[in-house]
Design a protein around this nucleic acid. Sequence first.
RNA 1: GCCCGGGUAGCUCAGCUGGUUAGAGCGUCGGGCUGUGGACCCGAAGGUCCCGGGUUCAAAUCCCGGCCCGGGCCCCA
Length: 428
Amino acid sequence: MREYRPPRGFRDFPPEVMLLRREVIGKIVRVFERYGYEPLDTPAVENWETLAGKYGEEAEGKLMWRFTDPWSKKEYALRYDLTVPLARFISNNMDIPLPFKRYHIAPVWRHEEPQRGRYREFYQCDVDIVGSPYPEADAEIVDVVGESLRELGFSGFRIRLNDRRLLSAVFEEELGLKDPLPVYRSIDKLDKIGAEGVRKELTRTVGESLAEKIMSLISLGGGADSMRAICSRYSHNAKAKEACDHLEQLTSLAGEVTFDLSLVRGLDYYTGPILEVVLDQPKIGSVAGGGRYDKLIGTFTGKDIPATGASLGIERLIDAGVELGILKASRSTVTDVYLVVVDWSFLSYAWRAAKELRRSGLNVRIDPARASEESQRKRARRLGVPVIAFVGMSEAETNSLTLYSPAKGERAVVKLEEAPLVVRRFLS
RNA sequence: GCCCGGGUAGCUCAGCUGGUUAGAGCGUCGGGCUGUGGACCCGAAGGUCCCGGGUUCAAAUCCCGGCCCGGGCCCCA
């Protein structure tokens, strides 16, 4: 037989996986809403012009899913993230009261080579605040991200923080780099290739003396102290000072963050603080990222509106969480009760019993294919249904059900009216 | 683009020091047994052993190329 599978990097989500994903998303939504973010969704497809010029050369050159509609010949693209669609949405709804706080949980598409924690279709969970230039907005984003991770059960993670203005002030204005990108790319690898590796790369690209200066900057390590050290060294620079004041206020409000001058991030549209979350345990890349993008909305409206936000990568969180054992599907089925019909001549009673249980709010499954008792029991076990209800002659004659909880090893014969109560006891 | 591992039944895989009719478990289907339900019994169907070439009397098995999947690098986030 010919094999048909999803395209490379795309996945099916079978029920057990969906239940876990739904649980994870539910927890994240609860945190987002606790802070008063409203739900938003936008189309999977955007006009190419909407997304063009927003992400940087590499993204647009090879990472975006882009196509020409064969009928209209118009150019479209699958959305690459949720931030640019937000900016587009704002530009179409300029009457929206600001600050606008929204969350957006939806798939995005990137044409990358799949790997662990990397797919071509994956969900992002975005939270953004549109309409505030102040550090408290950024601080809130930091807190929401941290709280989401804690809600999911993660404790070993770092929220790395930096600022695009500071990067630009230090590397372009102070150190005079015309093209800082290769330098950024090198220092961004600090975690991966170590200080010596970075030093080598830098020596090759900018020469030894500059490399030394850069190394001394990024080797200050993380934390508030290194931030203050860098900030005081460059306090004479207006742009650096602006960034430093912003970061100072941000960190005074937000939960614990790690300042890190080597954090860069790839997207073009960031203009201020940038953040990234990495887990201590599995090396799976970043699980969240974000930052301030005060000029992005202006590219649509002509008028800049300050905005800041972050995105949690649910695939990596799930992959990592499962690996760490802090996430696992608590159930593999939505069914509460599997009603096993021992003798199909009592189908009508079984049917009535199922309806009765459903009316009480329970999820009840009854075999629609007249399977043997044995195979019904097997299916129930395999699904992990918490309560099995048997219906045969004696139950039908006495208006009752025999309930069994495999987990508890308990069984009870109860009147149909009392069945929901007993089921709930078995479920608890 | 590069490096590793893999591709055998619907699924998970064994077989791979070449050698009759290619196997297991699970699942599916059929039958039997069973009213206390965490592995019951019997039977059946189901394979282009990824594709192409080569070596050989003989290839699922060895060699080369390709395709696909997974992981890693680069990159990205």
